[in-house]
Amino acid sequence: MDISDEKLIEEVKKRLDEKNRAINDLRATTLNLEDVNKKLQDSESLKSNFLSNIRNEINNPLTTLVALSGELSVMKSFEEEDISSFIRMIYLEALNLDFQIRNVLMAADLEAGESKLNITKTDLNSIIDSCLKNLTPFMEIHKINLIKEGPEDIWINTDSDRLFIAILNLLRNGINFNREGGRLEISFGESDEEFFFTVKDEGIGIESKDQQIIFDRFKQLDAGTQKKYMGHGLGLSVTKAAVESIDGLISVESQPGEGSSFTLMCKKQMENEIGGISTTGIEFFCDADEEF
């Protein structure tokens, strides 16, 4: 097919115009979105800042800790049973506080975006076990029936602190939102490039319309004065951000009344830095390194 030069130029001009119009439209949309975003940020900072949102979760265990240890310090006579129950309560509240502070610090870390990933070789099983060790007292309280299925050794190169906080949050939710005496099923495994970790509870479940909201920060479905479950809604947003920072994804499957199942899938071999980009030997140079 022959096309004259004029027609060709005309077509190119037409397409350029279309592209410019699309860019302009997008720019206008972007500006609108920026406005919306600014309003969102403003309303958020007006409504409540980070600290006021988490105040109760830090204050409550701390107050209990001070009160219990205060009681102990002035006790004249010691009944062995009393002492052990006091110590148990102190331990639980200390674990609560530890959990909340871990989440707050991780959130602050992720939002600052300045900490380097600390990638080390680690065993997935040992991370899961140390999370479970941390949560044993809560499982006893809720009479959780734990089932853990997965291979002995899954060696991964990842930031274990971030993976730990993600798994800890998922397990903690699986306990908190479970029914008393409910089952908590943990399964994990690997493929060539990835590993997965799934936790399934028998709790209240989540309606499909709410399944994305749960990852927003400070959003908890069970909010308000009649709040039945503890927590400040930071856990799942920290989990999602932590998982994404180690090349992973998190997903949820749930039906109201039938429990929830959370799965995270992450890259098995992360690298501290991508040095040799030119692994195939194909690399283009711009007069060696062009200076800008």
Binding site: T30, N37, L110, E111, S237, A241
Partner: peptide, 11 residues
């Protein structure tokens, strides 16, 4: 753009 959900990360 950050859509106001999740953490406000520098990604």
């Amino acid at each position: 753009l950050w859509n106001g959900e999740g953490l406000s990360e520098p990604k």
